[in-house]
Computed example of a mutant assay.
Amino acid sequence: MPKMKSHTGMGKRVKQTGSGKWISEQAGKRHLLEGKTSRRTRRLTGTVEVAKTEIKRIKKLLGR
């Protein structure tokens, strides 16, 4: 049986902190920025904790 390959794209998008939380960049700041207010785009900056419902899927993709 061949080895499981981890999903390299997911590995670049999420990171696990020392305490075990999963963090990623805030969504919604890639395109169509002219229609969004400056206040909204500023608040989309930075990292956020991944939703608990997504953690099972992320672990499966990373082979953990």
Rank of each mutant, 00 (worst) to 15 (best):
H7A: 13
G11E: 03
L62N: 03
V50C: 02
A51Q: 06
G35D: 06
M10T: 15
T47N: 04
M10R: 08
K15G: 04
W22M: 08
E25H: 09
A27H: 06
E34P: 10
T41E: 06
S19H: 03
R39Q: 14
R40T: 15
K3W: 06
T45V: 11
S38D: 12
L33P: 00
G9Y: 01
G35V: 06
L33V: 12
R40M: 06
V50N: 00
G18V: 07
K5E: 06
T37E: 08
R57C: 05
H7Y: 12
K52L: 03
V48F: 00
W22E: 09
K56E: 14
E34Q: 10
Q16K: 14
T45L: 14
G18A: 10
K60A: 15
G46M: 09
G20V: 15
I58R: 03
G28N: 02
A51F: 00
L61E: 03
G28S: 05
I58T: 01
G20N: 05
T8H: 13
G18T: 06
W22S: 10
V14A: 04
S6K: 10
T37F: 00
G46L: 14
K59N: 07
G18S: 11
G63Q: 05
I23K: 00
M1Y: 04
A27V: 11
S38A: 12
V48Y: 01
T17G: 03
T41H: 01
K52H: 05
E54N: 13
T41Q: 14
T17N: 03
P2I: 10
T37S: 15
I23H: 01
K56Q: 08
K12M: 11
K60Q: 07
K56A: 14
K59R: 08
I23R: 00
L32G: 11
I55K: 01
R57N: 09
K5V: 14
R40V: 15
V48E: 07
A27E: 04
I55P: 00
Q26F: 01
A51R: 05
A27M: 11
T53N: 06
L61Q: 09
K5L: 11
G35P: 01
A51E: 07
H31I: 05
